[in-house]
């Protein structure tokens, strides 16, 4: 007993003396540091390369002009920029209400088997490849409507957003302590008002963060738009007509044989990357700012 205590005091626990263990500890830390450094190098290279190729083609004209035919300089990506914004807006409008409702339902009815079925359904939906979702939107929306449209593209993106937002809403609301709900109920507040006015505001930061990350995820999706929004060389504001988007423009122009279009594609890639990065940063800031302490 006394022996053991002496050992602990001198740092002599088990094998090896203290300085050797500190050495091992250091070695391991350095190892982890170097490996994680190596792993980030390709990521940084990609970012650097996109920035290098993209920034060259970016100027004011780039944002306000439409793409020009091959051989002409000075084209821009205005239609794709507007298209991406409209697609994101429309798909958010379609996805957010049902997705949040689903999330609330799942967190409020954890034990019901029906809710478990819905939970697995949501997970399966999350795993479906985006190209398949594009085909589904084609069958459900494009064919009945008789043509490609931004609306059908938004439906495809919304289908991708719903499971993500539902899951993040569920996870957020599950973390909200029961005693908060009870506090409201004990004041005679009806159940639905308790959910709307107490539980959801307490989870607002998590819900909003989930929405923003969902948007960031679909902003770069190409596959679901190929046979839905389709793409458009001209400016279009109508959700019932084909519409361009940043990833569609990149897809179409990067595969073309023309240098002017290549540089448009690089510029668009850079804009897209910055956009997604900004969305992620915003979500981080919001989730800190609006964090509720219980």
């Amino acid at each position: 007993m006394a022996d053991k205590l002496e050992n602990i005091k001198s740092g002599n626990m088990g094998r090896g003396n203290l300085s050797f263990r500190i050495f091992k500890d250091r070695l391991f830390k350095i190892f982890v540091f170097v490996i994680s450094g190596l792993a980030t190098i390709p990521l940084l290279l990609i970012l650097f390369y996109i920035a290098k190729m993209g920034i060259a083609s970016i100027n004011w004209e780039f944002f306000i002009n439409l793409p020009r035919p091959p051989g002409e300089v000075g084209g821009g990506i205005a239609n794709a920029l507007v298209g991406t914004l409209i697609l994101i807006l429309t798909s958010s409008l379609i996805a957010i209400p049902p997705a949040i409702a689903l999330g609330v339902f799942m967190s409020e009815n954890k034990t019901k088997s029906f809710s478990k079925w819905i939970g697995s359904g949501v997970e399966i939906l999350q795993g479906i490849p985006s190209i398949v979702i594009g085909i589904i939107a084609y069958v459900w929306v494009v064919r009945p409507m008789g043509g490609f449209s931004a609306l059908s593209g938004s439906v495809a993106l919304a289908i991708m957003m719903i499971p993500f937002i539902a899951k993040s809403t569920e996870e957020t609301l599950k973390m909200i302590p029961l005693h908060l709900k009870e506090a409201s109920m004990a004041l005679g507040v009806p159940y639905y008002k308790t959910i709307l006015k107490v539980v959801m505001p307490a989870g607002l930061s998590g819900i909003v963060t989930g929405v923003i990350i969902a948007i960031a995820r679909v902003a770069g999706e190409t596959a679901p738009l190929l046979f839905t929004a389709f793409g458009n060389h001209f400016m279009s504001y109508s959700i019932f007509k084909p519409m361009n988007s940043l990833p569609l423009l990149i897809f179409n122009y990067a595969g073309s044989p023309y240098d002017e279009w290549h540089s448009l594609a690089w510029g668009a890639s850079f804009v897209l990357v910055v956009m997604v990065l900004l969305l992620n940063i915003i979500s981080k800031i919001l989730s800190k700012r609006w964090k509720v302490k219980f």
Binding site: P177, H179, L180, E182, A183, S184, M185, A186, L187, G188, V189, P190, V198, P201, A202, L204, V292, K293, F294
Partner: peptide, 20 residues
């Protein structure tokens, strides 16, 4: 039940003010 809870208030073991 809503009327009951307005007439009979409750204070819980853990303080639970509304954090928002």
């Amino acid at each position: 039940p809503i009327i009951v809870r307005r007439k009979i208030g409750m204070v819980f073991q853990r303080p639970n003010p509304f954090p928002t």
